[in-house]
Design a protein around this nucleic acid. Sequence first.
DNA 1: CTGTATCCTTAGGGATACTG
DNA 2: CAGTATCCCTAAGGATACAG
Lengths: 140, 140
Amino acid sequence: MLRNSKACRSNCPINFVLETFGDKWTLLIVRDLMFHNKRTFLEFMESDEKISSNILTERLRRLEDHGIVEKNTSPNNRSSFIYTLTSKGADLLPVMLEVTAWSAKHDSSTNTPDGFLDAFNSDRDGVISSFRSVINTDRK
Amino acid sequence: MLRNSKACRSNCPINFVLETFGDKWTLLIVRDLMFHNKRTFLEFMESDEKISSNILTERLRRLEDHGIVEKNTSPNNRSSFIYTLTSKGADLLPVMLEVTAWSAKHDSSTNTPDGFLDAFNSDRDGVISSFRSVINTDRK
DNA sequence: CTGTATCCTTAGGGATACTG
DNA sequence: CAGTATCCCTAAGGATACAG
C-alpha cells in the first residue's frame, strides 16, 4: 500500500524504476539485503558509504511502500526490526548482477569477487540461481 | 577524460553505477539513445519526461566525461551535434533489458511492447542480440 | 538549432539531539 | 537499539532569457 503516491512522469519501464531507484542510496540498501545478509537498521548504517539515519529511515519506508522490502518485528526481541526483501525485491537479482558485471568490466577498481565476471559470462543462469537460493527473502 | 572527478564513496560495483546513474534523468538519455534512435539535443528534449535544457546539457557532458556517450559534429551540418553511445554505453543493454523486464513484470501500467516479457524469458540471448544489432553506436 | 547563463524553488542530505 | 525530529546547507531541478 502506497502511503503517498506521486504522479508519474511517464509510463516508460525505465522511468518506472527511476521513480523508486533514481537516487544515490536506495539501491545500496537492496544490495545490502541481497548480497550482504544485512537486515537491521544498524547493519545498514554500518555500510561503507555512510548513509545518514534520516535518509535511511525515509528510504526504508519508501521501499516498504513500494512492496520491495518488508518490515517485521523480530520474533524473539520485540523492539528489534528485521527487514527482508519481498519476492518483488528479490526479482531485482538479475538487474543487480548485470550492473555488477558492467561495473566489473568497465572499472577495474571495483571490488568484485575474483572470477565473478568469467563465471557470469560463461554460466549466467547458474550464477543467478546460486545467488537466488541464498537471498534473504520473506518466506511465510 | 574526466573533467572533474569526484571522490568515490566506496569501490562497490553497485555504488559505481550510482555515481553516474544515481539520479532521475541520466538513464533516460541512455534509453533514448539505445531504444528510440535519438541523437540530437532537441530529440532528447522532446521525450515525455520533459527534461530541462540546463539539466540535459550537464547530463550529456557527464555521460561524455564517463565515456558512455560520444559527441560529434554532424558531417553535413557543422552547427549540428550528434550523440552516440560508445561501446561502453552499449554494454548497458543487458541492464536496460533486465530493468524493462522487471518493470513489465511488476507494474502493469508500463508501456512495454507486447510479447516482450515472454520473448525475453524464453529467449533472452536472442532478444539481446537482436537489440544489439540495431543500437546507435559509434563505429569508426 | 544547440546549447549557456541566470534566477529561483524544491529536494536531498549531513550533523546532531532526542525519544520509546 | 531503532528510529524520529530538527536545523541547516548544498545539490537538483524548473523557468526563462539569451548567445553563437
